[in-house]
Simulated assay, not measured.
Amino acid sequence: MTTDRRTAPHHNNLTCYTDYRCRRPECVERFTTWQRNRLQAVADGTWQPFIDAAPVREHLRSLYAAGLTIHRVSELTGIDWNTLRLYTQPAVRQGRGMIRRTTAETQAKILAIEPTPSLPGRVDPTGTRRRIQALVATGWPLKELGPHLAIQPDNVRRILARGQRVYGTTAQSAAKAYEQLRDSKPQRHGVTDLAIARARRHAKQNRWAPPSYWADRMDVIDDPDFEPLYGVSRREIVAQDANWLMRTNGLDRATAAARLGISKAYIDHAFRDHPEYALGTAA
């Protein structure tokens, strides 16, 4: 009888060993060192047991409400953001529950962060862009969002069109506006039905995910490495995967299909529906 092992999302702390049973030599050594130090601290009477994480959880929520992103808090504390998110919500897709107890050291690091710390000059634009896109998907025209974001409408368009970093104050304003407007109907703010329809159509054409999509993914809305698959059909995903397998490994369609656990006919249909992915692949 075999037991499935989940793959650790990272190898930066003890969770890969304790929660995912990772046995990389460096991870085993990290755990062994921690255990040795813990036992020595117990013997010396200096060991600090785990404490209730409720104060940490409430403080993190106040930081997020003030506009700080989880990645910004991670930068300020030196704590991996994957760990931080478990203080406020469980990682359902990874099968991990919310952190209920923590160390005094971790608590001190998090409680030391003020709700309104000095913001960096420029930050990654991913979260700001996704929040704006989500609001457009609910019917908010870009020109109407400008005042809520405290920036000019043309600057809103530039944020969506360019990959450059945005000011920390802009990211904070976008986060606040998103929390205020995500459940608010644009009609209540004087936006016309025609403008709402145009905004929604534009968002649909660009596959911009609405707030309902991000509702249980707020832990990754700021993560540039997370790829939203909103509005992407299974056939398009298959076409993408098959294209990658065939180009990088030199496989034909039949072999790629076997790798993906589908029929060759399904790949044929996927490429027919999405011919842009059929380019540069073998028959």
Rank of each mutant, 00 (worst) to 15 (best):
L149E: 00
T138E: 11
A197T: 07
R30M: 11
K176C: 02
Q133C: 11
I196C: 06
A257N: 03
T102W: 00
H274M: 03
T3I: 12
A8V: 03
R24N: 11
P90K: 02
D4F: 04
R23N: 14
I262T: 10
K176D: 03
A104P: 00
A199H: 06
I262W: 06
G250M: 12
R6F: 06
A254Q: 15
V136T: 10
G45P: 09
D241N: 09
G78H: 03
R5Q: 15
I51A: 04
D268F: 08
E179G: 06
I70W: 05
S212D: 15
T32Y: 02
R61S: 08
T103K: 03
G45M: 06
T170D: 15
D52L: 11
A8I: 05
A150D: 06
A239T: 08
L84R: 04
P120W: 14
A91H: 11
A256S: 09
Q240Y: 12
Y87P: 04
H10K: 02
A209M: 07
N13H: 11
R85Q: 13
T2C: 03
R217C: 03
A283I: 07
M218T: 07
R272P: 02
S173M: 07
W244H: 14
A175R: 15
L251M: 13
R100C: 09
V166H: 15
Q94F: 05
T3W: 01
Q107D: 08
Y277L: 03
H269N: 14
N82Q: 05
V56I: 13
L142K: 14
R235A: 01
Q40D: 05
E276R: 15
T255V: 10
P228F: 12
E58G: 00
R234C: 14
L279F: 12
R21I: 01
A66Y: 04
G45Q: 11
I70L: 15
R200Y: 03
I262N: 06
L142E: 12
R129M: 10
Y178M: 06
A256V: 04
P9H: 10
I151E: 05
